[in-house]
């Protein structure tokens, strides 16, 4: 789990570094970033309500603030916002948001606003990368930092799968089907990307996804 959290954190650091160092966000999907902000905000509504550990609270805070930062850069920054590929980043996110919401309203553990929003965030996260993957496919010669970002972001849920197996074997009564199935789907969505990423990495070439 720690490795999963760290790859998640590193993915965000890599993305912020890329944007800040190159003053460019080309190849980065604003739609995916906005979906992630929505995911974090709806999942971490309990930030001020329930306290698990300093580590958890800090990470939640970092995830919300950093995705807000990335969106701010892409939308408002004088130089960076010019480099955003708006014409290419055309995924219709309503097709991800509404089904996730409806599914969360139907399949959840408890019928309460907080619980439905939390479940919504789990469902939405599993598909939030799709606009980014579509954009990558449209971009020829993806830069290394962007492909590293997607790789780290994909690895994070994959590492969580191992964590869930471990917890399931060692903790009595540890079951969370909604999270497990969504996490499996989330990781599966990356499979194709992982394949081309590792292939280009082995050959020491820039990543370019077949269209």
């Amino acid at each position: 789990r720690e490795a999963g959290d760290m790859t998640h954190l590193f993915s965000i650091i890599v993305l912020l570094l890329k944007i800040n160092a190159t003053k460019s966000c080309s190849g980065v999907s604003l739609k995916t970033q906005e979906l992630y902000l929505l995911v974090f905000v709806t999942r971490y509504l309990d930030l001020f309500q329930s306290y698990i550990s300093l580590y958890n609270s800090c990470m939640k805070f970092i995830f919300i603030v950093s995705s807000g930062c990335i969106i701010g850069y892409m939308r408002k920054h004088k130089v960076v916002s010019q480099t955003y590929d708006a014409e290419q980043d055309t995924f219709r996110v309503a097709f991800l948001v509404w089904p996730s919401f409806l599914l969360a309203a139907v399949i959840n553990q408890k019928l309460s606003v907080m619980e439905i929003l939390w479940t919504f965030s789990i469902y939405l996260e599993s598909v939030a990368i799709l606009p980014q993957l579509v954009l990558l496919q449209r971009t020829k010669n993806v830069d290394n930092l962007t492909s590293n970002y997607v790789f780290l972001l994909g690895s994070y849920r994959g590492l969580y799968l191992l964590n869930w197996i471990y917890r399931c074997l060692t903790e009595e009564g540890y079951r969370q089907w909604i999270v497990w199935i969504s996490g499996l789907l989330q990781t599966a969505i990356y499979c194709d990307f992982f394949y081309y990423y590792l292939k280009s990495w082995r050959k020491n070439e820039r990543l370019s996804l077949p269209s």
């Binding site: 789990r1 959290d5 998640h8 309990d46 329930s50 698990i52 550990s53 958890n56 990470m59 939640k60 995830f63 553990q109 939390w118 969580y160 964590n163 903790e171 009564g173 540890y174 079951r175 969370q176 089907w177 999270v179």
Partner: peptide, 10 residues
């Protein structure tokens, strides 16, 4: 079935 009540993962 039982689920961990505390959402202790991120």
């Amino acid at each position: 079935d039982a689920r961990v009540e505390d959402k202790d993962e991120l």
